[in-house]
Amino acid sequence: MPTRRPPDLPERDVTPEAIFHDRRRLVRLLALSPLALAACSQKGEAGAPAPAPPPAPGTALSFTPNPAFRTRGPLTSWQDVTHYNNYYEFGTSKSDPARYSGTFKPQPWSVTVGGECEVPGIFAFEDLIKGIALEQRIYRHRCVEAWSMVIPWVGFPLGVLLKRFKPTSRAKYVAFTTVDRPGQMPGLSYPVLDWPYREGLRIDEAMHPLALLAVGVYGRVLPNQNGAPLRLVVPWKYGFKSTKAIVQIAFSETQPVTSWSQAAPDRYGFYANVNPEVGTVPWSQHTERRIAGAGFSLFGNRIATRLFNGYADQVASLYAGMDLRRDY
């Protein structure tokens, strides 16, 4: 499926809040009428303009929007991005991360870098990102549970950071580990996964310009529930690949063991590339429910899932010659 160029959506096109809320009321009224079904189901990707920027929480970051990375269709609201996500360290329900991450301390923070690289060490968060320009990228986010969002992340390409550690020629993979703090993360008391949470990428995937390390969302510092202070965003893979609250980066010659593929190898592979044709029981991956726009929408949320989450133009070459059914 060819990807169309995203339309430009300058700030002036953002609907004023009053009109925006009025629109919500109207949609709400319509939603009860069966006649509204046909009208509402037209939405899909090419929907309304982005919702208004979020209210105050969080420290504002300085960044430059990167126009090369945009997505058609409305953004997911700040409220939904920050109150509906999976972060099992805080609980398995999607409302748990926002509810139970209040006491989590994302500062001070340090990251341990090791393995096949010339500059290993323990780096303070501030030193780690010193001199790296932050940019905003609007990415589609596809969860393996078949829902998706459109999120304006603030961060920088993962490769920019990884190159600072000078990975050796034997660094074929890079593994990421999430922090493990039972006192601040109530979900860790359940043996849902073999904690701490571990994920990984092949080195060429990690160096791909689409792979992002995020420190913010919606122009502000990452909230705890979204993986503060530092998280991975790999938009062409299912969300569980995007490790949150990273404390460890390790380069290796062999493929690292990752939490989900360890827990349920028949469902979750190492690659976990978004692929509508490769379903994992009990979900099929042909379609997804897009959580975006005004927040209230009963109809027309379901859209077709695209190979590599619509980023095939950019990343398909990484997997040339591979059997995506086998290497799921």
């Binding site: 919500r24 709400r28 939603a31 009860l32 997911t76 609201s77 409220q79 939904d80 109150h83 509906y84 409302s95 829902w147 429910r289 959580i291 927040g295 209230f296 929408s297 009963l298 949320n301």
Partner: peptide
Amino acid sequence: VLHDTLGPDPV
């Protein structure tokens, strides 16, 4: 549904 209190994924 009318008061939009079903959260991000009302469906």
